[in-house]
């Protein structure tokens, strides 16, 4: 749906936490994102779903200042990200997917580094680092080099880095990948209370169930376009989000495809 409609349905006239308008991005011959418009209301828990290669990561990278769009604007709480990157990045918390961390630092050092880069003072950084390590069950590994962390622990410490400066908008690309169920539940609680206190969260995920349970808004992206966007109930209608997603994206193949794969055939 066009952005104007969403804005009209908002309870107040405060600018949305994130407004993407006409984002395009091309890599060589491949157009990864082809004109994406998206409105993320302030205080929402927004899910971004789409098949592999749909342009989720590219969109989120452009929305967080990690990737320059070819065309289009990104407004974070009404401020143009690409016109004032340094000013706007201060209110953004980012967890990108598929990139490394400064993993020769210990967990505590890495979170401290993120805090100090965002201009926090020493006491605040130290206190928040300790809180985050405890909340994410990393306190025992605070002095271990991040390079020796497991995949799930690395995700968690990256999440801590995204949270340490108390951003107004949190953009998380695949935050639950490789995270164990207990930690995932803890992270969901942290994010839910953050949203309840007025923060805005955007998560991308492959797991429809999770998005349906956790998020209040959702956008379905495929082939660099937004196929549907709105509240979870609006998008899924009567069906489950998973069924609606498959219906929107298509690409289901009949079960007769790999007849030779039946083990009974020989």
């Amino acid at each position: 749906m066009p952005p104007e409609d969403v804005r009209a349905t908002l309870p107040d006239q405060a600018p949305p936490a994130l407004l993407l308008q006409g984002l395009w991005r091309r890599f060589g011959q491949k157009i990864a994102v082809a004109g994406i418009d998206l409105t993320v209301p302030a205080g929402s828990f927004y899910g971004l779903v789409g098949p592999n290669g749909a342009g989720k990561t590219t969109t989120l990278s452009m929305a967080t200042g990690l990737l320059q769009p070819d065309f289009g604007t990104v407004l974070v709480h009404g401020r143009d990200l690409w016109a004032d990157p340094v000013g706007v990045k201060a209110v953004l918390g980012v967890l990108p997917d598929g990139v490394r961390l400064f993993d020769r630092l210990t967990g505590a050092q890495l979170i401290t580094y993120a805090g100090l880069l965002h201009g926090l003072d020493r006491e605040t950084t130290a206190a928040r680092t300790a809180d985050l390590l405890a909340a994410l069950d990393l306190a025992a590994d605070a002095q271990t080099l991040v390079v020796d962390y497991s995949a799930g622990m690395t995700k968690k410490v990256a999440l801590a880095c995204a949270l340490v400066h108390a951003p107004r908008l949190l953009v998380l690309d695949e935050p639950f990948e490789a995270v164990d169920p207990v930690s995932a539940a803890n992270i969901r609680d942290i994010l839910a209370s953050y949203v309840a206190s007025g923060g805005t969260v955007i998560v991308s995920s492959h797991v429809m169930d999770l998005v349906q349970r956790m998020c209040d808004h959702v956008a379905v992206i495929a082939g660099g376009h937004v196929l549907a966007a709105g509240t979870v109930d609006e998008v899924r209608g009567d069906a489950s989000l998973e069924d609606r997603f498959v219906e929107l994206v298509g690409g289901r193949v009949g079960g007769e495809g790999l007849a030779w794969l039946r083990t009974s055939s020989d």
Binding site: G65, L66, G87, L92, P96, V99, R100, F102, L117, H118
Partner: peptide, 15 residues
């Protein structure tokens, strides 16, 4: 040498 970890600097409000 930073490699993709350089994103930490790009994402931060760093001059």
């Amino acid at each position: 040498f930073d490699g993709t970890a350089f994103w930490t600097h790009v994402a931060a409000p760093l001059r």
